[in-house]
């Protein structure tokens, strides 16, 4: 590898060690590399936010307005990739799906009958609470499912750490149902039926 600008070895960072010019992302680098994170499922949300802002501080196109055309183009490419990585990794469900894809494991298997029965029951309870206008019950249901979400995420983390992607895939399936349930149970219901006027 040589630097596009000075021809010397640029080193592993985003900027050439010899001349300081921004470099293209290393071929085959993934979303974790884009944010300078280790590839693992268990990451604190705050850590992703912190890394994201620090990377953009150096790579965002606003930093390159007065620079040369190739530098501006590279900054745009890298900032776009960083935003893509951020969008994927900050959402635990998308992060898990992405990790499965990296492992070559399809994440769209069949839901187990047990899972379907459980979700169906929760949905019926939610609908009943909603039509009764029972906010306290909705809150309880939400808290209950949130705990399930936390448990499922811990289990997914363990499955990935233990190199058991098939097990992770089944759990990701469960996480997807949980996410959909929480979305329906949250206050976004009103917002989702509203169309932005334009």
């Amino acid at each position: 590898m040589t630097c596009w600008s000075c021809g010397k070895p640029p080193g592993a960072g985003a900027f050439c060690e010899a001349c300081g010019k921004v470099q293209p992302a290393a071929p085959g680098s993934d979303h974790f590399a884009a944010l300078g994170l280790e590839r693992r499922f268990a990451i604190e949300a705050a850590e992703i936010e912190r890394r994201y802002r620090n990377v953009q501080r150096r790579l965002h196109p606003d930093r390159f307005v007065t620079k040369s055309v190739p530098e501006r183009r590279l900054s745009l490419q890298r900032a776009t990739a960083v935003n893509d990585a951020y969008r994927t990794l900050k959402d635990p469900l998308k992060r898990a799906e992405y990790m499965l894809a990296l492992e070559g494991m399809p994440a769209d298997g069949e839901a187990s009958p047990d899972l379907l029965a459980e979700i169906l029951e929760l949905r019926e309870e939610l609908d009943a609470a909603k039509s009764a206008g029972d906010a306290a019950r909705i809150g309880e249901l939400r808290a209950h499912v949130r705990r399930q979400q936390d448990d499922t995420m811990s289990a997914i983390a363990r499955a990935f750490e233990g190199s058991a992607p098939a097990q992770a895939a089944a759990l990701v399936h469960r996480l997807r149902f949980i996410a959909r349930f929480l979305e329906d149970a949250s206050g976004t219901v009103e917002a989702r039926v509203q169309c932005p006027r334009s």
Binding site: R53, Q56, R57, D62, R63, V65, T66, S198
Partner: peptide
């Protein structure tokens, strides 16, 4: 001022989103 490179060097940055 920031974009024209006249403002503070490295400490201020805006990260925005697409609305729709």
């Amino acid at each position: 001022d920031l974009l024209a490179g006249e403002g503070r060097p490295d400490d201020v940055l805006l990260l925005d989103v697409n609305p729709l």
